[in-house]
Amino acid sequence: MQQSSALKKSPLIPEVATIEKITQETPDVKTFRVVFDDPSVMDGFTYRSGQCAMVSLPGVGEAMISITASPTRKGFLEFSVKKAGMLTGALHEAEEGQKIGVRGPYGNSFPIESMYGKDLVFIGGGIGLAPLRSLINNVLDNRDKFGAVEIIYGARSPQDLVFKEEILENWSKVKGVKVHVTVDKGDDDWKGPVGFVPAFAEQVNPSPAGSIAITCGPPIMIKFVLQTLAKLKFTPEQIITTLEMKMKCGVGKCGRCNIGEKYVCVDGPVFTLAQLGNMPNEF
């Protein structure tokens, strides 16, 4: 790989990484644990919860995927990927040991410092728990910096719940953490609550006093969760969510991911509801 010293590297060139472990979360979601081949690249890859990376399979393409690992746990990255398009479909065919390309980290992140001392309410739906998981584990690894934690999570069916073991074996056992899980439609073995996330969140009834709510999930779920939170008297400043737009470069140059002046790849994906209120309704 001979390069003249004058040539700065293109920001579009990924680093080579290896898929070390694949976990089948649900019929259409897999979590990939990924390690850069060059240890100095691995060490240099510092990121914050909420940031994303471009994951690529040369010959197929690239996709922007949120990093679901927590920066408090070093030496690897994790991506939870739902089979949707070409790239994610091909990733699902990948095997442990396969080489992929990764570039990043990209975007802003959850404003974790502004959450110190606050009670946190996480509301996730389906694969939307992936970006939240990075922040949740980050918070749990710094447990004494935060108040009470409520995790409200739901999926279409019991089979569609991601990170099941972690939710039940780890998170729910931490002091001051309450986990509430629902499914849209149960099955013979499901003993837990049944119902859509927004209505379920209303039943859980988290208090807005000294709280911040962070919600990720399908757009339609987010829409109704925002209504629920408004009903519970959370202000737009207290509500944080993430946006999705089509992305290609990830570095603010290819010109397609903007909502008004904001480029979601560099200025997002994390926004407070107050910020969203100031942006044009074009997403």
């Binding site: 579009l12 690529s56 040369p58 010959g59 197929v60 393409g61 690239e62 996709a63 949707a84 398009g85 070409m86 994610t88 999705e244 737009m245 089509k246 290609k248 470069c249 140059k253 290819c254 010109g255 397609r256």
Partner: peptide
């Protein structure tokens, strides 16, 4: 611009001009 790969085990990733006037420009997967 857009970014695409030639398909196959060996090939190249290239970028090419794209246009905000095209439907596909912002259409998601």
């Amino acid at each position: 611009f857009d970014i695409n790969d030639t398909s196959g085990q060996a090939g190249e990733r290239f970028r090419c001009w794209d246009s905000c006037m095209f439907t596909d420009f912002t259409r998601m997967a």
